[in-house]
């Protein structure tokens, strides 16, 4: 198994930043060697040898139907079916990535599934590339070189998250990144533990956490990245979710349950059903949203620490 030893939760910030900038489509090999379903395994073996690769996607037109791996070839040589066709012996259940997924998905998949390469599909489901550990390592090295150059030139400015604590109120903030589901929830977990520490009513803790998590997810799914700011006072929590774009075209639609512009793989995780903003509004006592195309969106939600009213949320 080839794994990539990068801690996506608590690795160095500079390294994580550059990983989140990259998409699978940026690092994959586009120069594809593919085979037709009726190609013989012997021919595919030659292709692997000539190109120095260990997996060949089998395609019908642009549609991926399977993968012939070096293991399939070894079995064929052992079992005596090397002259039979790819479609008879290929691996049919293939785990794929999409070109617009963040690179973190590829790293997580390599570490999780132990396969050496993943075919990459475009938005329309057509095969557009293949990504291996080698591709990822190469891309990361190139990016790291750029990053070190930037650091040396003193261009990278460190921005520690501001944290102010007075006797009664505390403010803190967390950055969010587009499509970073791996760390989504950190900001909301911090809010929850702060409220718990203060002994705030559990039902209020829950409403505040839900509001915060929905706003955080909304930034992760839809924005170019942003920041979650919290101000926890003695009797209320103010959550400000600020992002830098792209802005919401129709606020009324965005606040309607079921309206979503999320793509297919986000939906496959169980998100992107158009409930983030409506849920956040329901769970808070005050809710305001401002958005401008090209500039970004700011949501301010207030949660009162008095347990009596549970606006709109089911009991």
């Amino acid at each position: 198994m080839e794994s990539i030893p990068i801690d996506l939760n608590s690795g160095p910030k500079a390294v994580l930043e550059l990983i989140y900038r990259l998409k699978v489509g940026d690092v994959m090999s586009r120069d594809l060697a593919t085979a037709a379903p009726d190609a013989s395994l012997r021919d595919i073996r030659s292709l692997m040898r000539d190109r120095g690769i260990s997996g060949v996607p089998v395609v019908e037109g642009t549609r991926l139907i399977g993968l012939v791996t070096i293991e399939n070839i070894l079995e064929a040589l052992d079992g005596g079916w090397i002259d039979q066709s790819a479609q008879e012996h290929m691996t049919r259940s293939v785990i794929v990535l999409e070109a617009d997924m963040p690179l973190t998905f590829a790293i997580t998949y390599l570490n999780r599934y132990g396969y050496r390469r993943f075919p990459v599909l475009d938005k329309n489901g057509a095969l557009s590339g293949i990504v291996s550990a080698k591709d990822i390592i190469r891309a990361l090295l190139v990016e790291m070189n750029h990053e070190v150059e930037r650091l040396e030139e003193g261009l990278a400015k460190a921005e520690p998250a501001p944290e102010n604590t007075s006797a009664h109120s505390k403010s803190f903030s967390f950055p969010t990144r587009h499509w970073d589901f791996e760390t989504a929830g950190r900001a909301s977990a911090a809010l929850k533990s702060e409220l718990k520490k203060r002994g705030v009513d559990p039902a209020v803790q829950r409403r505040a956490s839900v509001t915060s998590y929905e706003l955080e997810l909304n930034q992760v799914i839809h924005s170019d990245g942003g920041v979650m700011e919290f101000e926890v006072g003695p009797d209320k929590t103010v959550i400000t979710a600020r992002d830098t774009g792209p802005g919401i075209a129709n606020l009324e639609s965005a606040l309607t349950e079921g309206f979503s512009t999320a793509n297919e793989w986000i939906r496959s995780l169980g998100f992107g059903a158009g409930l983030n903003l409506p849920n956040a509004r329901k769970s808070s006592n005050e809710f305001s949203i401002e958005s401008a195309i090209g500039k970004g969106t700011t949501v301010i939600a207030v949660i009162l620490h008095t347990p009596k009213t549970e606006p709109g949320s089911p009991v």
Binding site: Y213, E214, L217, L269, G270, F271, A273, G274, L275
Partner: peptide
């Protein structure tokens, strides 16, 4: 299986 729905409806 829709986590957004769970967020809206599941209780403590």
């Amino acid at each position: 299986d829709l986590l957004s729905d769970v967020m809206a409806r599941a209780s403590a």
